[in-house]
Amino acid sequence: MHPQPRLLALGDAAFTVEFGEPAARQITPDIQARVLGLAAALAELHAAGELPGVIEWVPAFRSVTVHFDPDRCPPRHLATRLQALAAEGRQATGSGREWTIPVCFEGDFAPDLDAVAAARGLSREAVVAQLIATEFIVCMLGFLPGFPYLDGLPASLEMPRLATPRPRVPAGSVAIAGRMGAIYPWDSPGGWRLVGRSPVSLFDAHRAERPALFAPGDRVRWQAVGADALARP
């Protein structure tokens, strides 16, 4: 049923543990549960001081990358350890937090909404209705600090990324691409379709315990609000 997890060397100071069929392109709840399960196991061992030399680990869509200091932690020893941990097949769902994020889908805050509607043969209102009816799951954080990859966009709204990325996407932009949603925590270049804007701050480096608002496994819904809600405090 489940292929053996694969251990891949990422240089001499990191291993990536990969789950699922090698050629798989879809992220299934089962694979995400295994990713979060391995991350949880690593967190427990690390907190107990049982992973000397392991610095950090990065859960992704279907893998966990473990960064370590190879001079404190012999790579062969860690490889054996990780393979055994991954083979246990532990599953976890993350914290189970549920977020309702205010999003303004109006006017210039949603510059690609009309194009998405036209491409999918829907009205603008129908697209927004589908977006706010969607429950997303945070698959991973990456690209930028706090940038969430939100799985769960319905196939009816699937769109490729822009052929030419925008040089500047404003912070707070709510976006879709493929079967994913996202919210840009920062001004940055970006190629996703911009369908709204949120006033929520997704990352605060001074919030020491929890700089990123979301964590993998969190559930996120978007709630339509007026433009007046975008005035950031």
């Binding site: 990422l10 100071a13 990536t16 992220i27 966990v64 960064h67």
Partner: peptide, 10 residues
């Protein structure tokens, strides 16, 4: 690929 972890030197 399905995005996964990278590191300086990759």
């Amino acid at each position: 690929i399905v995005s996964d972890g990278v590191t300086p030197g990759a």
